[in-house]
């Protein structure tokens, strides 16, 4: 049968769900071992962060697509969590091989790393489901006439998990390296996110990039950094 956009989306969703059937909702034995090898075991912090972010995600998803669809948001979040664990394990295996160390305490206790990785996994899930399918130009109005968000496209996820785009940028390449089965369309989507960040979002006034540029060049050269407007 001819390929249609809906058929293509269905195939991608089935593939993603299929790839993640063997990944659990909890860290695998291997991943749990990486956690245990840490000077400070990050497990409790990981679980607690996921709980907080699941609430934020479900709430914002419900606001965007209607309270009756909250269950869909929960399903997507759960798929995102499976992908997050799967990619984290692959990244750590690759780092263990590269650095010949098994204690990743600093990285695994870095909240920004976890939030970035989870945001990337959720973005992959949202893009696979067609994050744009709910897009109606930005805002709809609810029964009371108040605006409700309907655009779940990137960078929506950054706002939901409260993550600077600059930090999200850091995980993209390693994420693609760690998951060779990502479809061509998804890789292209992540590349589009990367370009958006590099060209626009990372240069917004509140970006951590400016502070890093200042540190890199020393305090005296700080005034040489161009303003976001430039």
């Amino acid at each position: 049968p001819p390929q249609t956009p809906i058929r293509a989306a269905m195939t991608s969703i089935q593939q993603l769900r299929g790839d993640l059937t063997s990944s659990g909702d909890q860290p695998s034995t291997n991943l749990a071992t990486y956690f245990k090898n840490c000077t400070v075991d990050p497990m409790q912090a990981v679980l607690s962060r996921l709980e907080t972010l699941e609430q934020a995600f479900s709430q914002r998803f419900g606001l965007a697509v209607g309270p009756r669809c909250i269950v869909l948001g929960c399903q997507r979040f759960k798929l995102g969590v499976r992908l997050y664990y799967k990619i984290m394990e692959a990244m750590l295996k690759s780092e263990e091989k590269r650095l010949s160390v098994q204690n990743f305490s600093k990285l695994l206790n870095d909240s920004t790393f976890h939030t970035s990785l989870l945001a990337c996994a959720l973005e992959v899930v949202m893009a696979t489901y067609g994050g744009g399918s709910f897009k109606t130009g930005g805002y709809n109005h609810d029964a009371a006439g108040d605006p409700v968000e309907t655009d779940l496209c990137f960078p929506w996820i950054l706002d939901v998990v409260d993550l600077p785009a600059f930090d999200f940028y850091k995980v993209i390449e390693s994420f693609i390296k760690a998951e060779p089965t990502l479809s061509k369309d998804i890789v292209k989507h992540l590349e589009t996110c990367e370009n958006l960040i590099m060209e626009r979002i990372a240069w917004r006034t509140d970006s951590p990039l400016f502070e890093l540029l200042k540190q890199e060049h020393g305090g005296g050269a700080a005034d040489q950094v161009e303003t976001p407007a430039s």
Binding site: L99, F113, K170, S174, I176
Partner: peptide, 21 residues
């Protein structure tokens, strides 16, 4: 396969990107 351009060198990884090595 895809056309993504990998920019990280072999000696760079996620640990360096988050300043954790």
């Amino acid at each position: 396969s895809h056309d993504y351009h990998f920019g990280l060198e072999d000696h760079e990884g996620i640990s360096e990107l988050f300043d954790c090595d």
